[in-house]
Design a protein around this nucleic acid. Sequence first.
DNA 1: CGAAGCGTTGAGTGCTTTCAATAGTTGTGG
DNA 2: CCACAACTATTGAAAGCACTCAACGCTTCG
Lengths: 257, 257
Amino acid sequence: MKDKTVIDLSALRVTCQSCGLYQFCLPMGLAEGDMERLDSVIKRRRKIEKGEYLYRMHDAFSTVYAIRSGSVKTYTSIESGAEQVTGFHLPGELLGLNAVSTQHHTNSAIALETTSVCEVPFERLEELARDIPSMQHHMLHVMSQEIQSDHCQLMMIAKMPAEARLARFLLSLSAHFGNRGFSATEFHLSMSRNDIANLLGLAVETVSRLFSHFQDEGLLSVERKHIVIHDMDGLMNTTAQGSSQPLPKDSSSNQRP
Amino acid sequence: MKDKTVIDLSALRVTCQSCGLYQFCLPMGLAEGDMERLDSVIKRRRKIEKGEYLYRMHDAFSTVYAIRSGSVKTYTSIESGAEQVTGFHLPGELLGLNAVSTQHHTNSAIALETTSVCEVPFERLEELARDIPSMQHHMLHVMSQEIQSDHCQLMMIAKMPAEARLARFLLSLSAHFGNRGFSATEFHLSMSRNDIANLLGLAVETVSRLFSHFQDEGLLSVERKHIVIHDMDGLMNTTAQGSSQPLPKDSSSNQRP
DNA sequence: CGAAGCGTTGAGTGCTTTCAATAGTTGTGG
DNA sequence: CCACAACTATTGAAAGCACTCAACGCTTCG
């Protein structure tokens, strides 16, 4: 335990530039000088264990979190006690920004495994954003991206059959891992079947059945939380909502003049 | 037609402060001086007819729109041609901000009736946001609010039966109108049944049946697009997912240590 | 080792969709 | 001005997908 301080010091000295994720994270697109200013604002690095909360719904909002390693589940609860998982978040993602409007968190964030995050005081971030145009733009960028992904999620739940939803979910995980230099075909699910089902708007049993079904078809192998994708194209095909229906364009009540 | 120029001039002279919606719109919370700066940035006021597009998916993003009157439907299209309505937007709402991340619009916005909007060049808005902290904050605020409402929508589609979804939809419209000084119990639906069904992730027939059902129960009267709510509480009760199930808190795989 | 929780599988039910037919509404052109 | 076409909305009947209920194996943890 003598070298504890040494470890702490080196940890504190870690900069965004030295982080393998900096191109996916807050400093994305920042000039070097600006990155140093960002570094100076990042409060500290925190490690949280599986099952610990990063923050809870209704907590006062003061801090934004960037995930360094591990994974986090976010979910909102409704009055009746029902929960809706809104996403699983992997390294490089920014959490907490959607609390700006209420000053209180509107969802809870819980670690799915041992997770390390960077904490950034939001006030500081706002100040930085004022001085650094690309930082301001990036914050808007991050939020607009979340909106887009929510819309995608919405469409998925509203329009796609269960099979396609799970396939898309797995493919999106696969792409995430692939982008970050990990295997796109073999990975570990840090979330429970329950969480997956909740995110996709399905019953746990349905998810379980679908995993078995995919395995029977030879699309993938699944053993508890270990996934190996054998047939990426096959998975993508199940995504295509049954088949390619030649929908009439603009089926709504409006036409362009 | 002699006074046409007079009308135009007076229209151009309209300021945010003179707009009945300013407390719901972009200038929300701005100091008076800052509001004038905002006014000077707003490019012009545009009137669009029913069926015209404010912008279309994939269009280059340069402008943010604030709705003055009328209503607008936004929707995204997926590769296969299927569409997902992402929202109906009423006076005071800001549209287009979610295109920041891609520089291209990721949804289309079409007028459901004759609609007038204010156009704000996004670049200008970003500049303003740099100079005026409360403006920057407000933009983040608007986007964070959209994320929250999307999460709400997600939960609704994923967890609620058809009846509750339509009830919630009507109640949210009612609240919107009420907040803006209109009747909360009697209003006009500017969107088609098809659009409603699409937004709620239902079939048109289901929506139609539900309207009839609500009417049979005496909760409301509906005649084509004219709605009169008779029993607000009754409607709210149908929202409660069948009843109040005493769900075990935190049904997920995680527990707090 | 027992309890508790997660995951899988089966059977039956039900909510919602799909298919189909009919009115009502809107818009256009003869 | 009316008739026809196209579209929107409503209603009924049948089918299907996913859910609920239920039981059991497996893993984890105290």
